[in-house]
């Protein structure tokens, strides 16, 4: 089709505007993360988009370096919350992916668990807030409160719908001839699943796992309710950084925010072509 020049100009202008809007908040935080204390709250003419004196101070600070310009050193460094986020997200992902993949295969190949698709969408529809009271009671009773594995278990369940639906559409798309051939050769169905299907699905499995990991890593509310001191995750820790004692620790929080933001941004690009499928429960494939 013929491309008209006015339309191309309009297109690029609109996209440029969208890019600026999309990037400003991220850029501001990234810039703040490298600003020294004196520039944190700069206003008016002193407000700059680029740090005047770029420094790694903020990163050192959240990992425990004290500084005289701030009233206190942090009583708790960012190391443990980062560990908490990693452990709970990774193990939550393992739970969701194992249970989700097994169930997706069971449904896709053997028609088992026909209630699951809707039950899991339902699980996704309800606000976590609305079921957290019983979970908090149960977790207190089971002594899972404020532990990374307690959090991982909830994550595993909350993201199970995504794992299940993603893997179900992947299994549905996969040609069955190879499996059938192996069955005829005399492999048991379990062996076919573990030795043939799963190795063939390595790439889709990895995409689904990354997708679920991003979901878990992004959580704030559940961690806020289920962790308190020992195993708070990055977002919870970040929100608690500032106190009336310290005032707003803009740069320190921005540094922490940057650390939290980078994994999903990188992984998200890696699984870009599966994003639509994941976010729409497999209804749409790109």
């Amino acid at each position: 089709m013929k491309k008209s020049i006015p339309f191309e100009v309009f297109r690029y202008a609109m996209i440029a505007l969208a890019l600026v809007v999309a990037l400003i908040p991220i850029a501001w935080m990234a810039s703040m993360a490298f600003k020294p204390v004196g520039e944190w709250s700069a206003t008016g003419a002193d407000l700059t988009w680029w740090p005047k004196h770029p420094t790694l101070f903020n990163f050192n600070f959240i990992f425990g370096q004290s500084d005289t310009s701030l009233i206190v050193a942090l009583e708790k460094t960012a190391a443990k919350p980062i560990l908490a986020s990693l452990l709970s997200s990774i193990f939550g992902t393992l739970i969701a992916i194992s249970a989700g993949t097994a169930a997706a295969y069971g449904l896709s190949r053997f028609g088992a668990g026909k209630n699951l698709p809707l039950a899991l969408i339902q699980l996704r529809i309800f606000p976590p807030m609305a079921v957290m009271i019983p979970v908090m009671i149960m977790w207190a009773f089971l002594r899972l409160n404020d532990t990374w594995f307690g959090l991982a278990l909830v994550y595993g369940i909350v993201t199970l719908p995504f794992a299940f639906w993603l893997m179900k559409t992947f299994f549905d798309d996969m040609p069955r001839e190879i499996e059938e051939a192996a069955l005829v050769e005399g492999c048991s169905r379990w062996r076919v699943f573990t030795r043939i299907t799963l190795p063939m699905m390595r790439a889709p499995l990895a995409s689904a796992a990354l997708f679920v990991f991003i979901m878990n890593w992004s959580d704030y509310l559940i961690a806020l309710l289920l962790t308190s001191r020992e195993w708070v995750t990055i977002p919870v820790y970040m929100a608690s950084l500032s106190s009336s004692m310290t005032g707003q620790l803009y740069g320190a929080k921005a540094a922490l925010g940057l650390i939290a933001a980078i994994p999903p941004l990188v992984l998200g690009i890696a699984i870009q072509k599966h994003l639509v499928r994941g976010l729409t429960f497999g209804a749409l494939k790109q």
Partner: peptide, 19 residues
Amino acid sequence: ILLMPMMVVPAVAGYMFYM
């Protein structure tokens, strides 16, 4: 690039806008 905002951890996005 346009997909980046939805990848940002929502709590972090909240902090970005707070600033």
